[in-house]
């Protein structure tokens, strides 16, 4: 083991630049995943099977195929259809879409957990469909699944290095660039690995604490 602290010190600013991009991709991806997942979950409950079945099939397909391949699909196929995004935007879309299929299941579980009486009460009070969802069902459904959603944010963080493979300059990409320009592989890659643990571990402890607070 020949660890060189000078290399580590030189690489640190690059790592922090990469960290900003990694966090940005994770945050934007989470927003997309939370929003899309809710759309899927509500579509699962649609009265029309022409909505339910196609949405279930698409969600099932996206969930059970690799994120990396979906990333390549968006990155290489969309430009041929004249839809052009930056690498980071493409990455955020792929990450958000992939994890929306996980959050959809989480929302669905939360919605299924709301007692039937709540739906019936909303009907009895002749609330509109929109009011029933927004004022009665979702506040109760989402509360109990917040920890699960948070867990998927952390899972997303750990999948975000895949974006380096389409050229997004996140933490992993800064390490690859450092390696190919100076042949210093040991320090950059080790530091990136440690950085993920340093972020993910406290975040997951936070989620555990939240889970206990919300009383599971």
């Amino acid at each position: 083991m020949n660890w060189n602290w000078d290399v580590a010190k030189d690489f640190l600013p690059d790592l922090l630049d990469g960290l900003v991009i990694t966090l940005e991709a994770t945050a934007l991806g989470s927003v997309l995943a939370f929003a899309l997942g809710l759309v899927w979950a509500m579509a699962f409950r649609s009265p029309s099977r022409f909505v339910r079945w196609p949405v279930s099939a698409v969600v099932e397909f996206i969930r059970n195929t690799p994120l990396l391949v979906q990333l390549f699909f968006f990155f290489y196929v969309l430009p041929t259809w004249d839809i052009k995004f930056s690498a980071l935007t493409t990455g955020v879309i792929a990450l958000g879409l992939h994890y929306s299929t996980y959050t959809a299941e989480v929302y669905r579980a939360g919605i299924d957990g709301v007692p039937v009486g709540q739906w019936e009460a909303a009907t009895a009070l002749s609330l509109s469909r929109g009011r029933t969802w927004l004022a009665v069902i979702l506040p109760q459904a989402i509360r109990r699944v917040v920890p699960a959603l948070g867990n998927y944010v952390i899972a997303m963080l750990k999948d975000s290095p895949m974006l380096a493979l389409i050229g997004v300059v996140d933490m992993l990409q800064t390490a690859r660039a450092e390696g190919s320009s100076s042949f210093n592989y040991i320090e950059p890659f080790t530091m990136v690995g440690i950085a993920f643990i340093v972020i993910a571990y406290p975040a997951s402890l936070l989620m555990r604490a939240l889970e206990r607070r919300l009383g599971h």
Binding site: E60, R63, N64, Y102, E105, V106, R108, A109, G110, D112, G113, R144, V145, P147, A148, L149, N151, Y152, I154, A155, K158, I197, A200, Y201, S204, L205, M207, R208, E211, H216
Partner: peptide, 21 residues
């Protein structure tokens, strides 16, 4: 392919993909 789980099982499954749990 995907199983339909209860809220607590969904939570357990998601925490299984991350650390510290």
């Amino acid at each position: 392919v995907t199983r339909k789980l209860s809220p607590s099982k969904e939570s357990a499954q998601s925490s299984n993909l991350i650390t510290g749990g």
